[in-house]
């Protein structure tokens, strides 16, 4: 079985129509999966469901051979221990410095020594090019800088799988590059990632496989070159022609 195996995942918000319908996806270690599709197709919902911010109505998630039971606190904790998610709006804690944002979960939740963790946090912030900003608060940083702090915060958790939820969508165009460079470096290091993005050129470059979602279902999966150049399904054809025209 694959490292992360999602099978028949179905999610609905409070009695309304399913936002995810019978989604299945296999992710191997070191793979980078690009999740693409029109707005509202359920891409972000997959990531939010994996970290337990939404409860699946049906389906199974198996991580490294262990089934995740989202109804059980212990099982959810174990799963959250191995995922890290970066949000579109960065979601940095506003009451903490960049360094504290990165160091808080490892010290508080994973109970590691503060000195070691802070040393690592400084190294991570340096790696995303923010060595000088360790003591800055989120409101003193640009969107691109905040997003890089958020990536450093996710990496400090030493996740098995990194989930990136439209991390460049809220950024000014000139700040997108710095964030994407950080992700490219992670891909080279062999980090397993699920990337939701509208940056098609970037997905094409870093993803080993792409899944196209529409109306809550996976319509087509395949290597990026095939998906973008020779789409099979009519809906993907329409989507790529609309996206690539710009």
């Amino acid at each position: 079985m694959a490292f992360l195996s999602i099978h028949g995942l179905t999610v609905s918000y409070g009695g309304k129509a399913d936002v995810l319908r019978d989604v299945s996806l296999e992710v191997e270690r070191g793979e980078v999966i690009g999740l693409i599709g029109p707005s509202g197709s359920g891409k972000s919902t997959i990531l939010r469901t994996l970290v337990g911010l939404l409860k699946p109505r049906a389906g199974t998630v198996t991580l490294d051979g262990t089934k995740v039971d989202y109804g059980s606190r212990g099982s959810l904790r174990a799963a959250r221990d191995r995922f890290a998610i970066v949000f579109q709006q960065y979601n940095l804690f506003q009451n903490m410095t960049a360094l504290r944002n990165v160091a808080i979960a490892p010290t508080l939740v994973k109970k590691r020594g503060r000195a070691t963790v802070e040393e690592e946090a400084r190294a991570l912030l340096a790696r995303v090019g923010l060595a000088e900003k360790v003591n800055a608060y989120p409101d003193e940083l640009s969107g691109g800088q905040q997003q890089r702090v958020a990536i450093a915060r996710a990496l400090a958790l030493k996740p098995d799988i990194l989930l990136l939820d439209e991390i460049t969508a809220a950024l000014d165009p000139e700040l997108v590059g710095e964030v994407l460079d950080t992700i490219r470096a992670l891909q080279k290091d062999g980090m397993t990632m699920l990337i939701v993005s509208h940056e098609m050129a970037f997905i094409r470059e870093v993803a080993s496989r792409v899944a196209f979602l529409d109306q809550g279902s996976v319509v087509e999966t395949g290597p990026p070159a095939e998906m973008f150049d020779r789409p099979n399904s009519p809906r993907l054809k329409e989507f790529t022609s609309r996206i690539l025209r710009h």
């Binding site: 939010r48 970290v51 337990g52 911010l53 904790r77 959250r80 221990d81 995922f83 890290a84 998610i85 949000f87 709006q89 979601n91 940095l92 804690f93 506003q94 009451n95 808080i104 979960a105 508080l108 939740v109 958790l157």
Partner: peptide, 25 residues
């Protein structure tokens, strides 16, 4: 809500979400 999302996804207990993230803000 995104402040809660981030804390919960990082396995903060409810008490810690409250005392470290929500209450200070």
């Amino acid at each position: 809500a995104p402040q809660w999302d981030a804390a919960e996804a990082m396995n903060f207990s409810r008490w810690r979400v409250l005392t470290r993230v929500v209450a200070p803000q």
